[in-house]
């Protein structure tokens, strides 16, 4: 309310700012120099033999989440369950029954990168992660 240019309680204000900055940058300086190397997802024999996924591997790496998101809308909301890629190859749009048919080891394939990137997709709360074995 006043036009006085003086900063009151300078000491407290600046100490507070320093503490705030220290706390908010904590993850950066705490993890300095100990960053883990990026993991490589491990392909199963079946996946290696198939050579190509739904999209080229690069696109899958960067965009599989968008693809899966589109798939779930297509399957659940539009009843379209068949995906035909640009080479004419057909896929049953099912995470558990199609994706995991090739990439049958969730631990070695999905989890490695997800853990590294610290993302926790909740797909597995419902979709069964090893449909061939026990739930």
């Amino acid at each position: 309310m006043s036009n006085n240019k003086k900063i009151y309680d300078k000491g407290i204000v600046f100490t507070g700012l320093v503490i705030f900055l220290a706390l908010i940058t904590f993850p950066f300086w705490y993890n300095r120099g100990i960053a883990a190397p990026a993991p490589e997802p491990e392909l199963t024999e079946k996946a290696k033999a198939a050579k190509e996924c739904v999209l080229p591997a690069d696109e899958m790496k960067t965009g599989h989440m968008q693809l899966l998101n589109d798939w779930r809308n297509d399957v659940v909301r539009n009843a379209d369950r068949m995906y035909v890629n640009e080479h004419g190859k057909e896929f049953n749009m099912s995470l558990s029954n199609e994706c995991l048919d090739c990439h049958s080891s969730k631990e070695d394939f999905c989890d490695r990168c997800h853990n590294y990137a610290s993302v926790k997709p909740y797909c597995w709360d419902c979709h069964i992660d090893n449909p061939k074995e026990k739930m």
């Binding site: 999209l55 297509d74 995906y83 640009e86």
Partner: peptide, 11 residues
Amino acid sequence: GSDEGSKAVVK
């Protein structure tokens, strides 16, 4: 379903 330009279809 997929990127523009590609011929992928959903059916």
